[in-house]
Computed example of a mutant assay.
Amino acid sequence: MSDYVPGLAGIPAAESSISFVDGEKGVLEYRGINVTELVKHSTFEEVCYLLLWGALPNQEELDIFTKELAERRDIEPEILKLAESMPRHGHPMNALQSLVSALGTLYPARDVESPRVQRETSLRLIAQLPTLIAFLHRRRQEEDFIRPQAELSTAENFLTMLRGSKPDPVEVKIFDAALILHADHTLNASTFTARVIGSTLSDGFSVIAGALGSLFGRLHGGANEAVLNMLDDMENEKEVRAKTEAMIAAKQKIMGVGHRVYQVKDPRAYLLQEMAENLFEKMGSSPLYERAKV
């Protein structure tokens, strides 16, 4: 009888050329390209193209891909009506999961082995998820929905729709980089969930809706929210240090500290910390950021 391995740690579950992680050396690559190079020299749209089709696009391919995304960013009235019927202050991840699933009713994609259906579903999800998230945020703030603009990039569109004003170019560059750094991470929990659902030949909208449910968890994507909640409960830098030292002494889990895969510092953290410092130096700091730095 085989030994039980919690969390399938170290157990190969799939082969993929999409991304690669070396947890001991702190390396993350997409299609053989280090993410540091992609952040420096590519845009989120180019990286999406790379992940989907295996190579960075030339200018003509990028122009076509960008145009296809722009044409699909807006939300159909049926989806808006459904979103408006949801509790205003319910958790946006619950709402987003439901809305992504509902997209499948508008854009049937059952022939999942068709390259045309695969491409269309991928384009639709990449284009509309930022719009849905921005809509849900503004509705929680009791603010009007701002529609996407065809001439803006994914990053600039999202920040504009989210806040209702034109973002600073530094903010756009940093958010674009953040999108790149979170675009893929081999077989993490939400990707594993997506692959299980996809293996049944379910449609792409159901696949991503299921993955969002996994991403929501506090031990996966929801860890970010848990960190913010923890910092919100601490009044100043002194309290942050005292409480975290007490948690370490008690061997309690500290959200946002450590990583299941990386035995050294997460390579994405170096880039994000540098960008955060540049952003707050230009735009001004915040108490939350000062507590986080401790």
Rank of each mutant, 00 (worst) to 15 (best):
M1K: 10
G198T: 12
M230S: 09
E113G: 04
E78F: 10
A150I: 03
F192V: 09
N229Y: 03
K40H: 09
G90R: 05
M161A: 07
A276L: 14
V196Q: 09
Q97T: 15
K253Q: 01
S122K: 08
D3P: 02
A55N: 13
S85D: 09
H259S: 02
A155D: 05
T121P: 08
L288A: 14
F205N: 10
F145N: 08
T43A: 04
L152N: 08
H182V: 02
E274N: 14
L271N: 03
I248S: 01
A209V: 06
V35I: 15
S42Y: 03
F44K: 10
A83M: 08
Y30V: 14
T154Q: 06
G90I: 03
V257W: 01
I18H: 01
R110S: 12
G213L: 12
D184E: 14
R268Y: 02
K251A: 07
K253I: 04
D203Q: 13
F205I: 09
G213N: 11
S85M: 10
T186G: 00
L201G: 11
L38I: 10
L62Q: 10
V207K: 07
R110D: 14
M255W: 02
H91L: 03
E24S: 11
R31W: 06
D203W: 01
R140P: 00
I18S: 03
S101K: 06
A276K: 12
K166Q: 12
A95H: 13
R291Y: 12
V112T: 12
A95M: 10
L288S: 14
G217T: 06
Y4R: 09
Q149A: 06
N236D: 15
M255Y: 04
P148E: 03
G54M: 03
N224M: 03
V207L: 09
S206T: 14
E281V: 07
F205R: 12
H182D: 00
R138T: 07
Q252S: 06
L28M: 06
R147Q: 13
S85W: 05
Q97N: 13
I133V: 14
E156K: 10
T43Y: 08
Q141G: 03
L8R: 06
D74F: 03
A155E: 05
I208N: 01
Q149M: 04
D144K: 11
P87W: 09
